[in-house]
Design a protein around this nucleic acid. Structure first.
Lengths: 338, 338
DNA sequence: TTGAAAGCGATACCAT
DNA sequence: ATGGTATCGCTTTCAA
C-alpha cells in the first residue's frame, strides 16, 4: 500500500504539500493540487489512519462493550451506537466478551489501547468502584443500562421498577384482580426490579399480593413454557400474567393455549422489552417498550460530548428512560362473565 | 494517558527495555522486569495500539462490511466474524452503510485506511470488476453471500437455488400438488434464485407449473400478509405455499388462519432462513436453515488465512453452503380427505 | 541484559 | 504557495 512519501515523490512535491491536499488544506496551488490528486488516484493511495491517530491523538473510533451480538437486544444497542458513529464520521469498534468481571475489564482495556476516546459500556459484573475509576480516567466513557450514583451524569438507564408499575396499572385497569407473575433468575437484577415495581403498585392499590410467582431459569421460550406449566400445575386461579420478557411471554401464551386457555379472553399476558418477536406472535404481544436503540444513540452522543444542556435532575439521577406501554392483542378487559 | 517514555523514565530504564517487558520479550533481568511491571501498574500504562499498528504493520483488527446491525441476519453475520476475531486476539471493526454502490465502496475504503488486513465483505451493489480489483489489492478480503467466478476461492455463499429445490421436494414428498409461491422484489436477487430452483424441481417432477406466484415488495410480516390476501382473492386452489422468507411466511400463516384455513392441516407453509422468529411462531415454522453465522465464521477464518487445504472444487465454485431443511410444524402430509 | 537510534506514516509548525 | 523537520508511541536491529 503506497504511502504519502510515494505520492510526494511521484508528484515531485513535499509530503507536507500532499498532506495539505489530502486534508483540503488552504494555500495549495490549483495546478499542484490537481497533479497530486491524479497521482493519488493512480497509486490508489489511502491515508493511514493509524499514523493519523498517532499524531492527531484522535482515533475516529467509537467503542462499544457488550457481551456479544447474538442477542438482538445487544445488536440493537450496537446498532444505535453505530448510527451515531456514522453521523460523526467515525467507526464502530466492538469489544465483546463473556459476562464476567475479567472479560468486561479486558474489553474496556482493549478499547483504551486503541485510544478510543468515546466508549459506551454495558457492564454487569465490574464493581461500581472499578467503573468509576475507568470513568474518571476516560471522560468519554458512558454507562448504559446501569446506574451508579457517583457518575450519574454518565449513566443511561431504564427504570425497570417503573415498568413493573405500569404493567400493574394496565392489568388492573382492565379489571384483572388475580395476577400471576413469571420471572427469571437471570444473571442480572432486572427481573427483581420489574417485579418489585409490579408488586408495590398492586399493594398500593389494595390488591394484597400476587397469587403466584414462578421463577424460571432460562429467560426464553422454553423457560416461559415450563414456568407456565408449573403455574397451571399449582392450581392457582389467575386471570392475568406479568412475564419477565417477551420471549418467555410467548412461551407462556403457547402453553396456555395448549391447555385450552384463550389469550386474551381467559387470560391476559403482558411481556417486557418489545423485541421484534412481540409483533410476530399471535396474538400480538402487549408489552413494555424498552427503547434500547434510542438509549444507545443518546449514550453515544453523550460519550462524544455532544450533549450540552444537562439539568440538575440528570446530574442526580442520570438519563433515565421510562418503558412505554405498547397495547397489542394479548391483554384485554377481564370478562366477568366467567 | 501515560506512554512508554513515562514508564521508562520512572523505572530508570530505556524504552527498549520497557518494550521488551510489555511484549514478554526474552533477555530481561528479573529485577528490572519486576520494577518495570510495578511502574506500569502504578501509572496505569496501556500500550498505544495505533503506534504499534504503525510500526508492526498489523492492525489486530478484523473488518466487516454490512448494511447495518438492525437486521438480525446481519447481526448474526457480524457475530460470527466477531467470534473468530476474539479467538485470534483481534477486534471487530464495523463498516456500515446503505446498500448503494458509493456506500459500499466507502465502507471498504475506511477499513483499508485502518490497514485492516482481513475483511469480510457483504456487498450487493458494487460491480464484479470493482470487487475483483479490491480483492486483488487486499489478499485478506473475502466475499460473503455472493459468488464471483474470478475470485471463486474467496467467495462464501449459499446455494439459494438448491434451497428452492429442497423446498419443492419436501412439499411434494408430503403429497402436495397445488403449490403457490410468495416472493419479494427485494433489492437483491436471492428471491429470484430461490424460486427458480423451486420451479425447476417441480417441472422436473412433472408438476407443470406453479398455480400462483405472488410478488410483494416488503419481505416482512406485512408483506406476507398482503401477498396472502392477494393469493386468496385470486381464488386459486392451493395446498401449500413456498414463501421467500420466514417473516413473510409468518405473515402468510397469520392471514391464512384469519381466513379460516388451518396450518398445516389445510395448507402447508414453508419459509426460508430459519431466523429466531421461526421457532417462536405458532405453528413453529418449517423452513430452510441459512447458516449465516457459520458461514461468517468460516469467512473470517479464510480472511485470516487460516484455511489451508483448498480443493479444486472450491477453487472453481467457491465455498458453497447448502441450506438445510428444518422440519417443524407448519408443513404436514397433504390430507386427501378434503 | 540493556541502551541508542532508525523508522513506521502521517500532521503541523516554522521557514522561505 | 511550498518545503523542511520535529513529533506522535512504539518495535526492532545493532552495539555495547
Amino acid at each position: 500500500m503506497s504511502t504519502i512519501k510515494d505520492v510526494a515523490r511521484e508528484a515531485g512535491v513535499s509530503i507536507a504539500t500532499v498532506s495539505r491536499v489530502v486534508n483540503n488544506g488552504p494555500k495549495v496551488g490549483e495546478k499542484t493540487k490537481a497533479r497530486v490528486l491524479s497521482i493519488m488516484a493512480e497509486l490508489g493511495y489511502r491515508p493511514n489512519e493509524n499514523a493519523r491517530a498517532l499524531v492527531t491523538q484522535k482515533s475516529k473510533t467509537l467503542g462499544v462493550v457488550i457481551p456479544d451480538l447474538s442477542d438482538p437486544f445487544f445488536a440493537s444497542l450496537a446498532n444505535g451506537v453505530d448510527k451515531v458513529a456514522r453521523q460523526n464520521n467515525m467507526q464502530l469498534l466492538l469489544s465483546t466478551g463473556l459476562i464476567t468481571e475479567e472479560s468486561e475489564r479486558q474489553a474496556i482495556r482493549l478499547l483504551l489501547e486503541r485510544r478510543c476516546e468515546s466508549i459506551v459500556v454495558h457492564s454487569k459484573k465490574l464493581s461500581d468502584e472499578e467503573i468509576i475509576e475507568f470513568a474518571n480516567k476516560v471522560p468519554g466513557l458512558v454507562l448504559i443500562d446501569r446506574f451508579i450514583q457517583k457518575i450519574a451524569d454518565r449513566c443511561i438507564w431504564l427504570d425497570n421498577e417503573e415498568g413493573g408499575k405500569i404493567a400493574a396499572r394496565h392489568l388492573m385497569s382492565l379489571g384483572h384482580q388475580q395476577l400471576a407473575c413469571i420471572s427469571s433468575k437471570y444473571q442480572i437484577d432486572d427481573p427483581a426490579l420489574r417485579f418489585k415495581g409490579f408488586k408495590n403498585e398492586l399493594t398500593e392499590s389494595g390488591l394484597s399480593l400476587l397469587n403466584q410467582h414462578i421463577v424460571e431459569d432460562e429467560p426464553n421460550l422454553q423457560g416461559g413454557e415450563m414456568a407456565t406449566q408449573k403455574l397451571l400445575a399449582s392450581d392457582t386461579k389467575f386471570d392475568a400474567i406479568f412475564v419477565y420478557n417477551d420471549a418467555m411471554a410467548i412461551g407462556a401464551i403457547s402453553t396456555l393455549e395448549d391447555n385450552g386457555y384463550r389469550v386474551p379472553l381467559d387470560v391476559s399476558v403482558i411481556g417486557f422489552d418489545d423485541v421484534l418477536l412481540s409483533r410476530y406472535s399471535r396474538p400480538k404481544l402487549t408489552t413494555l417498550h424498552y427503547p434500547i436503540e434510542e438509549m444507545a444513540e443518546f449514550a453515544a452522543q453523550l460519550a462524544l460530548g455532544n450533549i450540552k444542556d444537562v439539568t440538575a435532575q440528570q446530574i442526580s439521577s442520570g438519563y433515565k428512560y421510562i418503558p412505554r406501554l405498547v397495547k397489542r392483542e394479548s391483554t384485554s378487559l377481564h370478562s366477568f362473565s366467567k
